[in-house]
Structure formats: C-alpha cells, structure tokens
Computed example of a mutant assay.
Amino acid sequence: MANQVEPKLVKPLYDLLQKEHYMILATVDHETGGPNVNAISWVYALSEEAIRFAVDNRSRIVQNLEKNPNAAFTLIANETTYSISGKASILEEKLEGVPLKLALVEVAINEVRDIMFYGSKITVQPQYDKTYDKNAAAKLDKQVLEAMRNRI
C-alpha cells in the first residue's frame, strides 16, 4: 500500500507546528553536494503551505540553502513519520527582536509524505530537555517564536 502524499500540511501537523517542535532538517551540502542533516526546534508553520525556522546565521544550514534551496524536514507525529519537502528562502539574516544572531528561513512546501514503513506505528513521541537555564530558555523560545510569527 502506498504511503499518503499531500501538497500541504494537514490540519493536525499545522496545529502541532504552532509551537516549538523537534524536527530533523536535511539540506544539500554546499561543499560536497551530499546530504547534510541537523536537528532543529525553532520551527513554526506560517500556513499549511509554508514553514519557518530560525537557526544561527553562521550555520552550515544557511550556507547550504544559499547555494541550493532544496530542503526536507523529518517530523514524527500522529503515530507516524512524515517527510516535508520544499524550497527554502532566507527571509532575514538577523532576526529582529532576538538577542542571538539567528537567520529566519521560510520553506514553501511542495510535498508532505507519510514515510513510515508498512505495518508499524510510533508508540512514543520524541522528547528533549533544554540543558541550560530553564527560565532563560523559555524566554528565548518565546522571543524567537514571536519574531517568526510577526515577520510579514
């Protein structure tokens, strides 16, 4: 049986991405042309057709996307695994309203694909803890999410 493919985020995924969420981001390495994979969490679904994320503006992710805008996210949700692919644009090299030097990137979604292997489901959602000051982390997370939402 073929896995389900959609041209945009379905409502449960859109709703999930209204707050910080752990995702894997794959880009094309600007030096080797091979895959480059990173874990990110400052992610926000602007609409069912676009996802924004923030990363350090000196990141290899930014360098990769400047050369090749193809990007794919891996997202675990709803007892399955999704691949969300599209074309990335760097909207801001320095995101306003945030004390860190973060780039704001927007990915126009081409495809959302359920990629879970046949006859299985995810039984435990990935979780993570911030290992630095919890109050500082919460404040920074709020600033980043608000900056990503407010950028028109």
Rank of each mutant, 00 (worst) to 15 (best):
residue 121 K to D: 10
residue 82 Y to I: 08
residue 88 A to M: 05
residue 66 E to R: 15
residue 14 Y to F: 14
residue 61 I to P: 01
residue 62 V to T: 11
residue 133 D to M: 10
residue 81 T to P: 08
residue 118 Y to K: 09
residue 9 L to S: 09
residue 81 T to Y: 13
residue 109 I to G: 09
residue 32 T to F: 15
residue 92 E to C: 04
residue 80 T to H: 09
residue 149 R to L: 05
residue 8 K to W: 07
residue 35 P to D: 01
residue 98 V to A: 00
residue 123 T to M: 04
residue 130 K to R: 14
residue 111 E to R: 14
residue 37 V to E: 01
residue 151 R to N: 13
residue 13 L to R: 04
residue 95 L to T: 09
residue 70 N to M: 13
residue 16 L to H: 00
residue 9 L to V: 12
residue 78 N to I: 02
residue 61 I to A: 02
residue 132 Y to I: 10
residue 77 A to S: 03
residue 51 I to R: 03
residue 24 I to A: 15
residue 21 H to G: 07
residue 42 W to A: 12
residue 71 A to D: 04
residue 55 V to L: 07
residue 4 Q to A: 11
residue 98 V to Y: 00
residue 18 Q to M: 00
residue 15 D to F: 00
residue 81 T to N: 12
residue 63 Q to P: 06
residue 25 L to R: 01
residue 141 D to P: 08
residue 73 F to W: 10
residue 9 L to Y: 08
residue 109 I to Q: 04
residue 72 A to C: 15
residue 46 L to A: 13
residue 47 S to T: 10
residue 98 V to W: 00
residue 45 A to N: 08
residue 101 K to F: 10
residue 152 I to P: 12
residue 23 M to W: 10
residue 96 E to N: 04
residue 124 V to D: 01
residue 148 M to E: 02
residue 130 K to C: 12
residue 48 E to C: 03
residue 87 K to N: 06
residue 70 N to S: 15
residue 66 E to N: 13
residue 7 P to D: 07
residue 150 N to V: 13
residue 9 L to K: 08
residue 139 K to L: 12
residue 151 R to Y: 13
residue 97 G to C: 00
residue 104 L to P: 00
residue 38 N to C: 11
residue 127 Q to Y: 07
residue 85 S to G: 11
residue 5 V to W: 08
residue 65 L to M: 04
residue 147 A to F: 06
residue 40 I to A: 10
residue 37 V to F: 03
residue 132 Y to C: 02
residue 58 R to L: 01
residue 76 I to N: 05
residue 46 L to G: 07
residue 1 M to S: 15
residue 104 L to E: 00
residue 128 Y to P: 03
residue 51 I to N: 07
residue 14 Y to P: 09
residue 39 A to I: 12
residue 95 L to V: 06
residue 54 A to F: 00
residue 60 R to P: 07
residue 100 L to S: 03
residue 99 P to M: 08
residue 11 K to Y: 13
residue 134 K to W: 05
residue 68 N to E: 13
residue 34 G to E: 10
residue 29 D to R: 14
residue 119 G to C: 03
residue 76 I to R: 11
residue 38 N to G: 06
residue 83 S to K: 11
residue 115 I to F: 08
residue 151 R to I: 14
residue 7 P to V: 06
residue 146 E to H: 03
residue 80 T to Y: 03
residue 75 L to I: 14
residue 74 T to N: 13
residue 107 V to S: 03
residue 148 M to S: 02
residue 5 V to N: 06
residue 1 M to H: 14
residue 128 Y to I: 12
residue 33 G to Q: 08
residue 119 G to D: 00
residue 7 P to H: 05
residue 15 D to A: 03
residue 94 K to V: 11
residue 19 K to C: 13
residue 11 K to R: 11
residue 30 H to T: 08
residue 146 E to V: 01
residue 49 E to L: 06
residue 122 I to P: 02
residue 127 Q to H: 12
residue 24 I to L: 15
residue 91 L to I: 14
residue 84 I to Y: 10
residue 84 I to N: 07
residue 57 N to T: 10
residue 47 S to N: 07
residue 129 D to S: 14
residue 57 N to L: 02
residue 106 E to S: 05
residue 144 V to K: 02
residue 143 Q to C: 05
residue 37 V to R: 01
residue 49 E to T: 12
residue 42 W to L: 04
residue 33 G to S: 09
residue 31 E to H: 15
residue 24 I to R: 12
residue 120 S to G: 06
residue 27 T to M: 07
residue 124 V to I: 05
residue 108 A to H: 11
